[in-house]
Design a protein around this nucleic acid. Structure first.
Lengths: 222, 222
DNA sequence: CGCGGATTGTAAACAGCGTTAACTGTTAGG
DNA sequence: CCTAACAGTTAACGCTGTTTACAATCCGCG
């Protein structure tokens, strides 16, 4: 039934992973599958639809990486493991990382389809959960987990993106260290203590007008 | 002489800005210029070369935004202004932001050309300068400006990227606030004071010893 | 002035692309 | 047994980047 469909999808992933977006064409894919190009349209609406399924597969692989992080025993370790899992995924499957974060038009779409948006929402929620439990266990300051999660996600994504693009002329081992360091710096804070106090005021002030929780000074220790 | 060349380049920027990468073709560009497609090859080696020049123009525009930040009078204000300028550029010229941060293969290249890498290096150096003077004037903790600059750049780039991709379902005004907030959070630090102290040790330690992990020490405070 | 050479355009063509239309063979069901 | 669905084919359309061969214009030099 959908056996051939899955076979095609598998070949599509392979072809994309080895040839990239540039070398991906319906004709080449068909050849790899062992049919002619128009046959693909019996199983997929068009190229865009097909690539979207590949994005879905990329999300599945990322999911398997993140899921492993849950086996750590403390919130703090799960938090670390999640950060490392995200990095590991990006370094081991750069093409998947790339395609799932690609701008919509890269895939020939005008808008990000709901399916992808929802999957991304899942990644975000995973982060938020790690953040939340770290706040509850006194590792992270009490704050809006959603916003803090976003800050962390953006940082991780940005760093990995810059590295994969070859803009950081560091070997992988050096980057791995740099990634951890950068995370630690963010957690600890970059400002001096005096300036940090200023920022504290700013952040708590802006929180009062918004729909989010108020962060106390320090009520973390159990 | 190179008059026509510049005219073509101008049209190329216009065409890209209104049609995007998807709607950009040599034939359309030629039509807009008022010649036939092969004529373009008298002035540019190929499509890739031409798009690279567009990337160059994008860098020029970003440069003009960043440069304005230098007119602020204190390091701290210049730092803020730089962060805002980067955001302003991304929000006002999302296509330029996109193309200058695009993965190489997006443009049909196998590697990031030196020219682009150097331009990116310029952006990075601008950031580093802002960071350095903030360290010297006691706004930021004394640390490796290069690394701190990277952390901040990655965060800003990541956040803007996620927003422009439509993954943050916030209107622009909300995003602007979110962007500033996220910056403030990073500067102040996300960890509790106790955990922050741990990270302090980790960071100063790692400066002397080898590769590290995200979470340095066990012994979680429940 | 006239003549070569460089410069800048043209039309025609090639290979490849996504996609569609029309057609063929195979298979399952009433 | 005939029909309908299914899964493949070939041929074609209009698009793409790019190359080739050819024509026109302009500029400096003898």
């Amino acid at each position: 039934m959908t056996d051939q469909r899955e076979h095609i999808l598998g070949c599509a992933c392979d072809l994309y992973l080895e040839a990239g977006m540039e070398g991906f064409s319906m004709r080449k894919l068909a050849q790899q599958v062992g049919v002619t190009a128009p046959a693909l349209y019996r199983h997929f609406e068009n190229r865009e639809d097909l690539l979207l399924q590949v994005v879905g597969e990329a999300h599945n692989v990322l999911g398997s990486y993140l899921y492993r992080a849950l086996s750590a025993s403390t919130p703090r370790e799960r938090f670390s493991a999640a950060g490392e899992a995200y990095m590991e995924f990006a370094l081991e499957h750069p093409r998947y990382f790339q395609i799932m974060h690609a701008f919509a038009e890269h895939l020939g779409l005008s808008e990000v389809p709901v399916e992808v948006e929802e999957r991304m929402g899942g990644v975000k929620r995973f982060w938020d959960d790690r953040v939340r439990e770290c706040m509850e266990s006194g590792v992270l300051r009490r704050d809006d987990p959603d916003r803090v999660g976003l800050t962390l996600w953006a940082h991780a994504y940005g760093l990995l993106s810059l590295y994969l693009r070859g803009l950081l002329d560091a070997p992988e081992s050096a980057f791995r260290e740099l990634y951890g360091d950068s995370f630690a710096r963010i957690l600890r804070g970059l400002a001096t203590t005096e300036y940090g106090a200023d920022l504290d005021q700013h952040l708590t002030h802006s929180r009062e007008s918004g729909p989010t929780r108020i962060s106390p000074v320090d009520g973390t220790t159990p």
